[in-house]
Design a protein around this nucleic acid. Structure first.
Length: 274
DNA sequence: CATTCCTCCTGAGTGC
DNA sequence: TGCACTCAGGAGGAAT
């Protein structure tokens, strides 16, 4: 599932190829992927617009256009966004294909159809609710220890639930929440406010370290994730707990546990996480 | 306001 | 082999 490192990897790939290209056509196989405006509007009005750059907030990918509008794409669980210098490689899960005037294409595919595309003026970006209410970017200076310390203190939920809350912090999903808590040696079912000051500091560092390493590895390809060139990431080879139920903990060699926490399948080591 | 539950969707896995 | 069933999960919205 694409989380911050995967979306950032895709953004980085698109930044290399999209700026300067001009949309020529939009083919829509499943209009449900386009939330706003109506799919027909995108088909008639997007052609002629030129890409000026790319951006990302949390798991929201942004493609900026020369009329001060922006395409916003959220891949949710199984979405993929693949650029091709020629015709798109499509299957029954390809829902939208953007073509550029030079014959190149950008294909949006999504098995579970949870992924969403918006096209809005930059001035109306805050009408996308999930985007408007996002917490700080974990790798930016907006995210600092005193913020985490303050937020953790006032929450009654488990620390796993808090890490998954996009309003607390932008971009974490199920995989990295588990990996971060393992690195910080904190059990996911702990109440957020029960963490000691030292645990909060370990957590703060773990968030930034795990995300930075995952970006360096170009993301985690457990199942569906591919980068903008259709290539796999590498971080699945570095996972310590996620998807490793009953295997040995790399830190202490005890068996990894899995149970449901915050409604999500959650992986942890009862021996070295406390 | 904070939190929990339900919903969207399809493919993979399980049991019979 | 086929069928019914459960599970996986991001996030919006309803319910509590």
């Amino acid at each position: 599932m694409p989380e911050l490192p995967e979306v950032e990897t895709i953004r980085c790939g698109l930044e290399q190829v999209l700026p300067g290209r001009v949309f020529a056509a939009v083919e829509i196989g499943y209009g449900g992927s386009i939330k706003d405006p109506a799919a027909a509007d995108v088909m008639t009005r997007l052609p002629g617009k030129r890409v000026t750059g790319t951006g990302r907030r949390g798991k929201y990918l942004q493609i900026f256009l020369d009329d001060d509008s922006v395409l916003v794409i959220h891949l949710r669980m199984t979405g993929q966004l693949v650029f091709n210098e020629g015709a798109a490689v499509t299957d029954k899960h390809t829902h939208v294909v953007f073509s550029f005037t030079d014959g190149s294409t950008l294909a949006f595919s999504d098995i579970r159809k949870f992924g969403t595309i918006w096209w809005v003026p930059i001035s109306r970006l805050d009408h996308i609710k999930g985007l408007a209410t996002l917490g700080p970017e974990p790798l930016s200076a907006d995210f600092h220890f005193s913020y985490l310390n303050r937020e953790v203190e006032k929450r009654t939920v488990t620390i796993k639930a808090l890490l998954l809350n996009q309003q607390f912090l932008a971009g974490l999903g199920n995989i990295y929440a588990d990996e971060i808590l393992h690195r910080a040696q904190i059990l996911p079912q702990r109440k957020a406010r029960s963490l000691s000051r030292q645990e909060r500091q370990h957590l703060f560092s773990a968030i930034r370290e795990v995300l930075a390493e995952a970006i360096e590895c170009r993301g985690t390809s457990m199942s569906d994730y591919r980068d903008s060139a259709g290539a796999l990431g590498e971080f699945q080879n570095r996972l310590q707990v996620y998807g490793r139920r009953d295997q040995d903990c790399p830190r202490c060699q005890k068996k990894i546990s899995r149970s449901k926490v915050a409604g999500r399948g959650t992986h942890y080591c009862t021996s070295c996480q406390h």
